[in-house]
Design a protein around this nucleic acid. Sequence first.
DNA 1: CTGCTTATAGAACGAACGTTCGAACCATGA
DNA 2: TCATGGTTCGAACGTTCGTTCTATAAGCAG
Lengths: 202, 202
Amino acid sequence: MATPGNSRGTVVDQADMRESLLETAVEMFSEKGFSGTSIRDIAREHGVSLSNIYYYFSNKEGLWREIMNRSVRSLPGRLRAAIAQADTPRAQLDALIREHLRAGVEHQRELLMLLTEQGQLGEDSSRETLEIQREILEIYTAVLEALSAEGALHEGHIRVAVFNILGVVNWHLRWYRADGPLPADTLHQEITNFISRAVCRD
Amino acid sequence: MATPGNSRGTVVDQADMRESLLETAVEMFSEKGFSGTSIRDIAREHGVSLSNIYYYFSNKEGLWREIMNRSVRSLPGRLRAAIAQADTPRAQLDALIREHLRAGVEHQRELLMLLTEQGQLGEDSSRETLEIQREILEIYTAVLEALSAEGALHEGHIRVAVFNILGVVNWHLRWYRADGPLPADTLHQEITNFISRAVCRD
DNA sequence: CTGCTTATAGAACGAACGTTCGAACCATGA
DNA sequence: TCATGGTTCGAACGTTCGTTCTATAAGCAG
């Protein structure tokens, strides 16, 4: 039996190929959507044969799910961890938004995919992405309820405020260009200020 | 030569068929996207034959464009008209947002289609929808610049504020259900308040 | 060199796609 | 009554889709 694991060159190459294929797939999925991107498109863009993609991934939906699992799946946990570091509800909201924005810097296209998906996937994958979005919604709701409990919120439905915040945060994934003139730190500060003024009394 | 125009029944039926086909198409396009919706899907959902759709519309993209042309195309004009009715920049922003939200009540799914489209259409249609979004962006920018000129704005880039506002307004198209428990008027008031607090000094 | 495993490519499959065509229906006017 | 023309449908076209199969090149073990 051959020992492919010992031959480092092969293993690294395989991992690199997987990684770069995922990168190309993310780019195209986030721009054209799931059903707007064909596996042939990804193969052509990556300069590799169509069938070669099936050597690395089970199928088209498996490719999508792998992207989701390695960068979006962990988002709710990241957000909860960020909240846990803060003590006051006011600081929690700030930490929550900042962590969400930071995640957008690392995985802008992947988070866009999460929002792009509109019932184009199979039932399992669709349920999974909806579950993640629901988790995020609950995280924001909990923080805003804590703020509301100490009277720090403006009047109105918490649910509406949560969706408005998510609108601002998610929308920036669509228009912000990391290679543009606006530094991410500046943008994050302005978005945080925008949301704070909108929801918090002071 | 038959005079189909005189026989009112036929004409009304034809118009009705067109209308109801457009309705079905809007519903499916806005939920599954352009390439995620097949003409066969629309035909099946509407209980009509596939080829019959081609009797009323030139092709799939023509169907999409007709929907855009009859309800989204006029949006920039609507927004400009609403602004023209107000005299102060502060009142203009209020009128602008309210008109935008009102348009969302009438054409929620159609406006969603405008945001859903991601390079899945042909070049002409794609350029058209981008042009509409650019117009809307400019309208908001002009109003915010007027506000900024009289020092009524919080510090920060106007461009960022515009995108944040559009994020809130556009996002509500995705989550709001007109048949839910939250009245549209209440929602509109809360969204308007949210944005006002976020951008306006007072 | 000879086998064996891994990685890649090309050909092909059945299904679904957008689109077209021709025949059939059906209401109307003469 | 019959002919006419608007409306509908089923069948079929060629293309593209996701996926599978088979063959081949390359690297290592004996």
